[in-house]
Nucleic acid binder design. Structure first.
Lengths: 362, 362
DNA sequence: GTGAAAGCGCTAACAG
DNA sequence: CTGTTAGCGCTTTCAC
């Protein structure tokens, strides 16, 4: 057997087509551009220890000395090298947020919530788009292991989270919206089962009996839970759910919703109402219905999920289930911060309330 | 004069309400969780140098030795500490992308373009939401100075970029969509002046003479350029632009567009066509027009800008100027990578082509 | 109050 | 091919 250079090392770089690290040839230890703490110390006529103390706001420095140091810092344009500091203190003050698709406006407000809590606590939050791809997901999780970040919040499909396996359970992260209660990872989300039931019951109350479900990928916990909520609400109303009314899509794009709706309408006994598990899908559904000559809500009623800001803008305005997006994000961030502060504390699971918002579409 | 503890140091943490770093008390140098390279070396019965060589895929290691090291790595669950590695190599392989609002779908596709090029080259891309706030912008730029990231791509308003001042010019970053050609920073964007002209000329060709402009904040270069394109296109057609037809909004939210449109319609000689400088605005405009009883395009025509995926979904489908979003992002990433590879190379400015997409709204 | 010195985990000469 | 060693820039004892 010959050499196996491809096994050479655990993958170092993010992507699949990643180059070896050597790619950028750096001849020598590199002349750092700015001055280091030593330069400042020299310029101020003190030791590096004193500069460090000033930098960190310790109070055991004589004011006069402090001022001298400050002046030297100012004059030299010195900036702390966080790499060095972080290596020394073993923390990076960086939080990662992993989303399956940052094109979906649903995530925007959640992420804002996370960001605001993070910065209030002196952390930076950085966003990662995993594309719901396990490989990318893993590469971001690896940033935790490799100490580039202190913690992470994951909004990826529960299935992907589980695929990470036990190895990740010890890592400082929390789940948001998507989670597996059994995993022992702190989470925050809503009661998708009840929420979906609420939506369907609203449709039923409006007199609909043939109610379609346009669902997303069952990789998502919410997809499975909302489907169950839909099924049970129907059964409870004495309706046997027809499998032909149900569709699973592997995308939340508008186009996906549009063509699914058109397809649903091609059936002989087409639904008179459609519950889409995401507002983006629902907006596509409305478009698709229009394209096959159906009026909303007169011919077909449509209900969505999330209550993104767009929902109120379209024609007709979308009836939907509102999620407390900002709070979801804020709570997730707080859970993570708690976990970081106290790694072995209990891991709570939090469910936040949803709300049915009735507008023109159903 | 008493102590001035508040001056103590250049701000260390991101936000305004940030705590001192001491916040999380860490008693001792911290027991790192995983094994270090030394542990692996010991376990494999080799020196740290050899482990490092294996880790970095150098080929001057005997296969048998390599396998022993690999086994030790596997067994111990070792992960490279990037903090240490980065400190040593003086690079982080992290790229930052700064956007004013990641709720705007316009940015999503651009960011995907950046991300894909970045990971192809072995870099991670992390997204930062500045909220178009100079302070936050600055704090992210500081991550460059503090060596937490190797480079950045900035999509923030040109005005904010300029406010960063000369100090930032030496930093490894490029501008995308928004830029000041005079700043000597590489950039990629489109010809906003011509694009806006194209939109307005389309409206003129449809027979409109009273054409309104719903513009965003003039902090944005594109806002100024598109306004000029609008004005000149009108003048060229022998129309004296009426200032009452123009509005500047400090938001791109749907709601902002909606209320602006309603307000525009309250005028005696209301426009028969509206050019909105963003699709999100245009979508809001359509909603606003509908809310005051105007039909689109029969009563009022509407043209947008960007061609986000939603544009084709709404009713009526939006006539708009398409920006090559993916390419904008990819190009920005490539420019940055170039600049990183060769810091003193020439800084190109790139303009990509736009395209008028005619749909139902105008 | 201040300085000297150790060391965080890693890479890259330099020797052998 | 492999090991020894010197730092990268910083924080933090421990002395003075």
């Amino acid at each position: 057997m010959s050499r196996t250079p491809s096994r050479s090392s655990p993958p170092v770089s993010p992507g699949a087509g990643s180059q070896p690290r050597a790619q950028t040839p750096r001849p020598f230890p590199i002349a750092a551009d700015g001055p280091s703490i030593a330069g400042v110390a020299e310029q101020a006529g003190v030791s590096v220890a004193t500069v460090s103390r000033v930098l960190n706001g310790h109070d055991n420095v004589r004011p006069a000395t402090r001022d001298r140091v400050l002046a030297a810092i100012d004059a030299s344009g010195y900036r702390v090298n966080e790499l060095a500091r972080n290596l020394r203190t073993a923390e990076s003050r960086l939080l990662l947020t992993m989303v399956p698709d940052f094109g979906n406006p649903f995530y925007a407000e959640i992420v804002r919530g996370i960001d605001s809590v993070a910065r209030q606590h002196g952390y930076f939050m950085l966003l990662c788009d995993t594309g719901a791809d396990p490989g990318r997901e893993r590469s971001y999780f690896d940033m935790l292991r490799r100490r580039r970040a202190d913690g992470a919040i994951c909004l990826d499909p529960a299935t992907i989270q589980q695929a990470l396996g036990e190895a990740s359970q010890a890592l400082p992260w929390v789940a948001c919206c998507e989670f597996d209660p059994e995993m022992g990872v702190p989470y925050v989300g809503i009661d998708n089962y009840r929420a979906a039931g609420d939506a369907v019951r609203h449709l039923l109350a409006r007199g609909h009996r043939r109610i379609g479900l346009i669902n997303s990928d069952v990789d998502y916990l919410y997809a499975r839970q909302r489907q169950q909520g839909y099924l049970d609400a129907l059964s409870d109303a004495g309706i046997a759910p027809d499998p032909r009314w149900r569709m699973n899509l592997n995308s939340l794009d508008y186009e996906a919703g549009a063509s699914a709706a058109a397809e649903l309408m091609r059936q002989p006994d087409a639904p008179s109402a459609i519950f889409a598990v995401s507002d983006t899908l629902a907006i596509g559904v409305i478009h698709g219905l229009r394209s096959v000559g159906k009026r909303v809500p007169d011919d077909v009623a449509v209900a969505g999920f999330d209550d993104i800001s767009l929902a109120a803008q379209i024609d007709p305005p979308l009836t939907t289930i509102a999620q407390p997006m900002r709070e979801l994000g804020e709570t997730a961030a707080r859970l993570l911060l708690q976990r970081l502060a106290n790694p072995q504390a209990n891991v709570p699971g939090v469910l936040l309330p949803h709300r049915l918002v009735i507008r023109g579409s159903a």
